[in-house]
Design a protein around this nucleic acid. Sequence first.
DNA 1: AGAGGTTACGGGCAGCGTAAGGATC
DNA 2: GATCCTTACGCTGCCCGTAACCTCT
Lengths: 304, 304
Amino acid sequence: MTVPMIDFRSLEIFIWVAELRSFRRAAEKLNIAPPAVLARINALEQFLNVRLFEPDRRRVALTPEGHELLVHAERLNGMYSEMIEKIGDRSTTRGIVRLGVSESIVHTWLPVLFARVNATYPQLGFEIDVNISPYLRDRLVSKDLDLAFLLGPINSQNVHSRPLCSFPVAFVADDKIGLPHESIALEHIVKWPLITFARNTEPYMALRQLLAREGLRATIHASASLEAVVRMALDGIGIAVIPPAIIEKKIDARERLRRLHTTIELPDLNFVVGWPDAPVHRAAQKVAEIAIEVAREMPKSETA
Amino acid sequence: MTVPMIDFRSLEIFIWVAELRSFRRAAEKLNIAPPAVLARINALEQFLNVRLFEPDRRRVALTPEGHELLVHAERLNGMYSEMIEKIGDRSTTRGIVRLGVSESIVHTWLPVLFARVNATYPQLGFEIDVNISPYLRDRLVSKDLDLAFLLGPINSQNVHSRPLCSFPVAFVADDKIGLPHESIALEHIVKWPLITFARNTEPYMALRQLLAREGLRATIHASASLEAVVRMALDGIGIAVIPPAIIEKKIDARERLRRLHTTIELPDLNFVVGWPDAPVHRAAQKVAEIAIEVAREMPKSETA
DNA sequence: AGAGGTTACGGGCAGCGTAAGGATC
DNA sequence: GATCCTTACGCTGCCCGTAACCTCT
């Protein structure tokens, strides 16, 4: 009981190997070398005198004992975090959160979130992946991300989510292209190129559906970079189809780009915060809570 | 979360310091040097950024945060043992159990207990203290023992106990001193010196009370060593007042010492197993269970 | 041949012990 | 002055990284 004790670190490593079904990926997630992972697992097995993974290591699968240990390990890990959180001051919440973010969020309230998180948990670090929502969803499912802000809903058993914020999508154009200030019909809008999100994204496809429904054709510029979309709109290349919220923070864009008056209905972009169900990343949960808070406060400044 | 993680060892050390209210005693119990204990506590406080013991270290008392941590630490420690026990094979139950034992138990079923424990948990070690029950009880209260087999009942809030076995006390003498085989009255017995347990022990005092009640005087040899009692009886020095059970295992004594027939009522010796309520020593609990089992089987061989 | 699990080996650090200091009764 | 907490310091052993190997696809 007292000589070569199991520690929380070993349990954490074991949990990740078990969850990710891979030594290499666990090592990657934990930012350590694969041999270190292997050594911990071997030490565990030796200490318990039990095989935790199938003798055939090619297929990384838990033995019955391994499954049993996983249950205990996750419970212990949860209680450990609970303890730290309860007793330690805020500086105790450390570590790295692997965060996936939709670009729309980057352009709206992500900086606010970071400011607030940093004020509350100064020791917390991030590994940020800005990408389109379908990709982020896959990364959540494969547990390569601890947390993501992306377009919902998420239909996956292993990923939980909560609503964050809802952005209306509108047609936005630079004044200089000379569109009237009165309400304008879609058939006039499509005379200009439409600039929007990348293919495979929800707003892009929504726009395509709208055009098909109305029997109209239009040139669509799809950009993986929102910055590029805004820049093109500012350059008078076409009409951007984006949530006005994302130009709220950009002075030059906010001053020159104008939301067109139309009666056209484009579906809102419903953002959610998502995270894998296990292993529970306590710090990520904290960030999620703050994100929900920040996102809820956002609409107040949304004037466009 | 990942850099200088708390481990179970630190929690264990913290628990003992908190329970024993002393760094030195905790170090002693854990078989390590006091500075090692201090370093662990300091590391804990630094990690949590919280004082766990009163700033005035002379009085080792928990701060409110310390109390809170103690709750969590003991829960975690319990779950840790549970996990080890559930998944690990029997060789996983290691460590040292500080065991206090009444000498009567040593002479009856203690060897059987050791044999069985050793067969089940080969890695388990003992630190045995053979002593009289009042002393053992004090050591239990002060948590200097993990487990004890002693005369009950134990009336202490912090010590739990379960009944083990009940030994009748009888007058036992060597054949050569020529006492009749028929029933013999106390007034004849007291012509010989009576040899029994040490002063301050329950059986000694019971014998004194019996004599006082009957208005008889007798020479009493009180011995702290049961071996000496038996030897004196074998040498024909007097009549031993002991549980016959303790000579069951000694061939020479069993063949020559005889239980006298009397109608005299001496109270039975009721042995119990006792342990401090916290911290829970899992291995000690296992030993207690086996002891109860062994003690229950004993009477079957008790023929004297 | 590439990917992933495994073994060999070396360096850095943390935990423990010894020895000595300091405070309190 | 005895006891107990505390500090200083050196050593051992463990953990992790690098590099190379093995095996299966």
